[in-house]
Amino acid sequence: MENPYKQTGQALHRRAQEIRKKICVMNAAAKSGHTGGDMSEADILAALYFHVMRYEVKADTTVQWLDQFILSKGHGVGGLYACFAELGWLEDRELLTYLKDDSRLPGHPVRQKLPNWVTVNTGGLGHGLPIAAGLAMAKQRHSAGGGDTTGRVFVLTGDGELEEGSNWEAAMSAAHFELSNLVVIVDRNRLQLADFTHNIMDLEPLDDKFKAFGFEVHDVNGNEADQIWKLIESLDTQNGKPKALIANTIKGRGVSFMENVPAWHHKFPDEDQLKQALRELEDA
């Protein structure tokens, strides 16, 4: 099984930019959302869904997954919904129901609402990595038992989220159980709700922390989709080591007035800001 798109270069970059445009439209309509974190992760989602992950979409848009994705930073769900829309699984007009009554698009992903596309319900922080470790173990057991190629599990965490201790319980386990098919991608935008991460709780040296826990660690520009898929394709997912990709990103990436501004963690664009944002994203 392969990724159905395998897109690269400008085509893949446009996917990320289209995801960003949808995020801005969606959050402006909802007058809410976690815009900054949605924007920082767009290239990572584009790389995963339009190049890396191996899956097959059935005629009814249900999906058979070989690789799977868990959004541990569940508040970044706007990016995920926008990505689903870019994949054609959601219509753009449904994105306008984000956070509204009876919508299938609540403020954190709910698998009962979007069965099969959402792996697990996240939102509380520090949950994704343990779940991903369990799922990676299941995939290893499946292939060891004579199943197909070992599926990989990609889990996207925020960086502030790594302050939760449960991540490090899971990290210890992932190395101990040699979950080499587990890839944690840290959306390292250096901002959390209250302020820059280094002002709240310094995570550095983050790469050494993961290394000390037994991970193979790589740094990557998390806002360059090509660099992300190239790095992931170079990984040896049989070498006994779980992988940590520290994806250096910019919160609010792609829109000048959002970039690196703490307030955009939870801000949404007004009418004028939306126009400007869409213009910037179209041109870049």
Binding site: G126, P130, I131, A132, A133, G134, L135, A138, S173
Partner: peptide, 23 residues
Amino acid sequence: VVNVGIAEQNMVGMAAGLALGGH
């Protein structure tokens, strides 16, 4: 039998992941 050590949060999270994987 999977023993995660003294780490109940991880035990429960991994249990959910293993269940998602069909067990």
